[in-house]
Design a protein around this nucleic acid. Structure first.
Lengths: 145, 145
DNA sequence: ACAATAAAAGATATTTATATCTTTTATTGT
DNA sequence: ACAATAAAAGATATAAATATCTTTTATTGT
């Protein structure tokens, strides 16, 4: 298990891919996304359905249909994707699983974890979905293997 | 899902509890540990068996038996517990799940994640298992609820 | 030796995450 | 209208994580 669930990893990779591939206003199909981010097609379909329902990504059915991102979606912070898929627990929950852990009633790791979680959150809030489009085009960063 | 697996959360809480409760050389039984860290007893038993096999904690069977920590174990960094239970993936694996992600072949989040993971690792390597014994005694930090 | 204790080990159950396959609905171009 | 396309939705399967229960083994005190 990584920091995120596998579902979330696929979601982020897919969202980055859709952002890059549809920056020109076109759409991209599930099959093409799955191949390019190396994920199981039908499982990814479920994930993207959910993201679409939540308004994180957009989609149209039928010929020339597919997934894409509108201007608002392109500008979203990556943290929105994480929250939509895994929930915000990673940003907020106690590292040792205590329900009532707080600064008043801290677990032993509370203070240290607060720092790490805040950094993670700040990082993911300051990264936008479209920010890697160019690096992806240039092959400087990758989404598969 | 938190940063660690539930198994790992129980493990860390248990190890902290054993450290505090057996600093005087005594032992503590599984039932007492489970009650005090609010975990399912039999499940925790499995976890502690495994930690015992790996030498992270010590145990003796029979009357007056139970779990404890020797001097070496008390001085261990908490990262050893994490590695024993969840593996080192949290310190090393790609945030987006890519097998071959590296500085030469990075995912979009590679550099940012490297920083967060390193901080987490440094933090967990610099915390020792026994370092909260006193705060636990004083009730300044807690291991349940 | 024996009974009591407590962890170790084994077996099984339940829940959640991940994955696959099929059918339905919306959209498009002819 | 109709056929083709592609996502949405529904149903089911598999694997992994979490949890529970039972039996065995080691140790202790009598």
């Amino acid at each position: 298990m990584g920091i995120f669930s596998k579902t979330c990893e696929y979601a982020v990779r897919a969202v980055f891919f859709i952002a890059q591939r549809t920056a020109d206003g076109s759409r991209v199909g599930i099959k093409e996304i799955a191949v390019n981010i190396d994920s199981p097609e039908h499982f990814l379909a479920k994930i993207l359905q959910d993201l679409s329902r939540r308004g994180i990504i957009q989609s149209v059915k039928g010929p020339n249909g597919g997934f894409y991102l509108d201007a608002q979606s392109l500008a979203r912070p990556l943290s929105d994707v994480i929250e939509a898929v895994d929930g915000g627990g990673i940003f907020r929950d106690c590292g040792l699983g205590l329900k009532e852990c707080s600064s008043k009633n801290p677990c032993p790791l509370h203070h240290d974890f607060l720092d790490v979680r805040n950094r993670l959150q700040n990082m993911l809030e300051s990264i936008t979905i479209s920010q890697f489009n160019e690096d992806l085009n240039l092959g400087i960063v990758v989404l598969k293997k």
